[in-house]
């Protein structure tokens, strides 16, 4: 059960602090849980844990490909590995290792990519993963998650190490806009309807969920009744909720913090195209590279804003 507490304010705890505390709790509670990092523990709240839990916290060093292979091997030895690096490396740099040694080999590894999309901010275009969702969606049987806020992150991490095969999870290191109460729970493969509506279904994930909620409030002032669906689990996609709301609303707008090529919008469009053609518009990165800047600047530059969502909603409703 989840509770939406959105009021536009940010969470008190930074994502990295929640992540570090959750990893600590998990290794304490289960001797089979093992956490691996490639020299980014000081960036993600897990720094120093290797001293207290030397058998379960593995500082691999700057060798992401080896880290994913080691994680796969540890799974084959009966452990439950979670491996973290920045999303830019967690996707494209280790893709072959993740594909073969983890997914194809049916080893169970949770791969965490932090600094998703424009959240990479000052690390710039070299470090800005817009392509990770597309890559992992194309891996058979993989689970792909874009976390909405750190309340969700802390709640779902313990269940993810029980998953079979490859699980890819995007997380934010900083303070997210609060969407969920801390005691919320989540079920993989089930989208959360955060706001009901009949004129348009806004299907969002990650950073864009709070923008979608903000857009819905703005649209309401103009008499447009927008539903907002948090599709935090992008694969497996909650097809039932997409089909239900596209039928009910007759117009769909997707919103994601990544390239629309192969991302959430593509997943929804593929489903609707095959099963229930519906006017759809995708808010997201329109096939561009990233760049350095503040998150606010980047959001405006790439159109990842509530304003852009409102604009696309109106255009899409006009196509009904």
């Amino acid at each position: 059960m989840f509770k939406c507490i959105y009021n536009g304010e940010k969470e008190k705890a930074a994502g990295k602090n929640v992540f570090g505390a959750t990893i600590k709790k998990m290794v304490q509670n289960d001797p089979k849980v093992v956490y691996l990092d490639a020299d980014l523990m000081n960036s993600i709240g897990t720094f120093g844990l290797d001293k207290d839990y030397p058998n379960q916290i593995v500082e691999v060093g700057i060798q992401e490909a080896n880290m994913i292979g080691v994680a796969a091997g540890m799974s084959a030895a009966g452990m439950k590995p979670i491996a973290h690096t920045f999303g830019s490396f967690a996707g494209r740099r280790v893709f072959d290792q993740a594909f073969m040694s983890v997914a194809y080999a049916k080893n169970n590894v949770v791969i965490i990519g932090s600094d998703s999309g424009i959240n990479a901010a000052y690390n710039g275009g070299t470090h800005m993963p817009f392509e990770d969702i597309c890559l992992y969606r194309a891996v058979p049987e993989a689970t792909v998650i874009d976390t909405t806020d750190s309340a969700m992150l802390g709640s779902i991490l313990p269940q993810l190490v029980e998953n079979k095969g490859l699980t890819y999870v995007r997380i934010c290191r900083k303070n997210c806009v609060a969407v969920y109460s801390e005691d919320s729970t989540f079920e993989q493969g089930k989208a959360n309807v955060l706001r009901d509506g009949k004129d348009v279904a806004i299907i969002a994930a990650g950073y864009m969920v709070s923008e979608a909620l903000k857009a819905a409030e703005e649209l309401a002032k103009e008499g447009i009744d927008a539903a907002v669906i948090d599709m935090w689990c992008i694969k497996p996609l909650d097809e039932a909720v997409v089909l239900e709301y596209s039928k009910k609303c007759g117009a769909v707008v997707t919103a994601e913090n990544g390239n629309v090529v192969g991302g959430l919008g593509a997943a929804v469009a593929e489903l609707l195209g095959e099963k229930q053609p519906t006017p759809i518009s995708m808010v997201g990165i329109r096939d561009r590279f990233g760049q350095v800047g503040t998150v606010d600047f980047l959001a405006k530059e790439y159109g990842l804003t509530a304003e852009k969502v409102c604009e696309e909603v109106k255009k899409t409703i006009a196509r009904k």
Partner: peptide, 26 residues
Amino acid sequence: DMTTGSLGQGASTAAGLALGLKAQNK
């Protein structure tokens, strides 16, 4: 004991097996 084929990857999975077994005192 391990799926291999993309060269180099078995090196890491073998090391992971060794580390995982050692962590469990096998």
